[in-house]
Design a protein around this nucleic acid. Sequence first.
DNA 1: TGCAATTTGAGGTACGTCAATCAATTTGTT
DNA 2: AACAAATTGATTGACGTACCTCAAATTGCA
Lengths: 335, 335
Amino acid sequence: MSGPTVHDVARTAQVSLATVDRVLNNRGGVSSKAEAKVKAAVAQTGYVRNMAAANLSRRRVYRFCFVVPSGDTGFVALLQAALERERSRLVEEQILIQIIPTHAFDVAGQVAALRDLDCDAVAIMASEAPEIQEEVSRLRASGVRVVTLVADLPQSDREAYVGLDNVAAGRTAAEFMGRFLGASGEVLMIAGSLSSRDHNERLMGFRRVMQERFQHLTLLPAVEGNDDAQSVERLVAEASAARPLVGIYAIGAGNKGLVRAVQKADAKPVTIVHELTPTSRQGLRDGTIDLVLDQDTSAAVVAAVRIMRDLTEGREVSAETGKIRLNIFSRENIQ
Amino acid sequence: MSGPTVHDVARTAQVSLATVDRVLNNRGGVSSKAEAKVKAAVAQTGYVRNMAAANLSRRRVYRFCFVVPSGDTGFVALLQAALERERSRLVEEQILIQIIPTHAFDVAGQVAALRDLDCDAVAIMASEAPEIQEEVSRLRASGVRVVTLVADLPQSDREAYVGLDNVAAGRTAAEFMGRFLGASGEVLMIAGSLSSRDHNERLMGFRRVMQERFQHLTLLPAVEGNDDAQSVERLVAEASAARPLVGIYAIGAGNKGLVRAVQKADAKPVTIVHELTPTSRQGLRDGTIDLVLDQDTSAAVVAAVRIMRDLTEGREVSAETGKIRLNIFSRENIQ
DNA sequence: TGCAATTTGAGGTACGTCAATCAATTTGTT
DNA sequence: AACAAATTGATTGACGTACCTCAAATTGCA
């Protein structure tokens, strides 16, 4: 009922089990003739290694770390929750995941967290700072497989990125903004931080499509909300003081403030935000927010674990696996 | 390094290994006192069964079947491709998947396929016919776990559904249609089959939101395209003969015909279709199609396998797991 | 108290693979 | 031909669990 085993391979190759083992785990000391015989037998029998048995025998337990910003609201909270949800299932598959919370913009703390890591692979959501990239290199050099999560470090030695195509996200936001808005007017872009790569990429995509296709709309200079509700509220109020805004694209966190500001505004602008959190969900429901662009945290966690596992098991990883689909939520498709 | 084993449980419970085994696999013949001791020890040690070892020992191989419509184009082709892609990975985890192609509307053939199934669980994408529901009951009665895929059979004994919330998909389509269209005009809905549940649900959702929120648009009676390009092309041509259409919502397959018809039309209608296939992707790119609502086939396959595995391993399955997110594609977020 | 029924323990084999040892064989070199 | 080096085979003991047998201990009941 089960497939062919190493014994079958040994028999058809007419070599001993030891030789098959040497070839399969390339331990060396095998003549090219014998190696060819084994490989032929593998192909002929259709042998595939029983990973469960292999891991069992070598008493392998995968230890994966997630270095992610702490926080009990918004996106990071959802990410934590998704991690917790996955944990129990993964334990049964001998995969232990450890969550290492850091402070969002605390580079030193993040470096410290990365420094005393002890695991097979790590998924990192951290700032794009040279110190961190160095730490990534060090980790890789010491045999740890590194994956970036949500925020990429393309200059680093990371082996895969799990997250959105942020330029495409910005372009998409612009497209809907443009199509929802027939008349002309001013559109405000609020980033969390103007120095973070992912936010910049979203801005870039947004700007480009606005320029290419929707010239009836005027883009105000991007402002920095610092992922903080109060700042965001103030910024929106200031921007709409002179003349009402027709659209707002909010890239970072702090949507509570955004919602408050929009509710106070004279004319309701088309509002597009990122990440489906309780706040943005409520905003959709009551009409304050028109669209939420979301990267599914569960999908991100699952993809990250899958890639880390593929990497540690020596499988190839296609960039495709890490691509998280951009989910678009409106009031009609949240339940 | 690894977690506690049955030996640890036996030691802390102060019973023999045999007793632990009897409790864990409820073989009976254990006093309630001993059972309590074992359960306490499990809780105390944090023991979790090593599924890999368990399956190895009982030489378990999961055999999952996918009964899906055949076809080398469109959505079903994508589904087949996704299945093939998953296969190799799953083999290593001792999961064998068998794909059983059927003809799309051939109920008798589908029943026959279900009848001589030999597997632990099956994912079914088939018509909602009483014969099939009976067959599902029979399968369940004979111990096979049944999951519906893409097209649900809610009246049957299936244990889970993997796929879209089709009502929400229709509502979403309507929302975008309404918001893209400022001026009034006539909107055409083309279903594949008016007697298929999923298409009907989409229509229902679409109609409802149109009625609730976008009364400036007039809905023409839904027509049946039979998932066939020529029929679809003809239907669109006929509908726009009298007066140009301002919008088209195409629910089923046959988008090649839709694209041809739209390209010939005098005024370009806002066009929303389902499923991201090469045709619809091209339509987005050249502007014939405005939005594609897609259910990710890879995600569907992964979710189906996961649920089938959870079911056969006796884990609980939340309805959440089967929910496939609705992906919305526009020209700005396909690459 | 005696006897049967129930419960418990002890121990073994198997699953497929890894990892190691040691002896036996083949190969290459001079 | 002699010897070292390289290659191969045979064998063993894990890993954690399932499943089986048989004997020993405990319980219930008359």
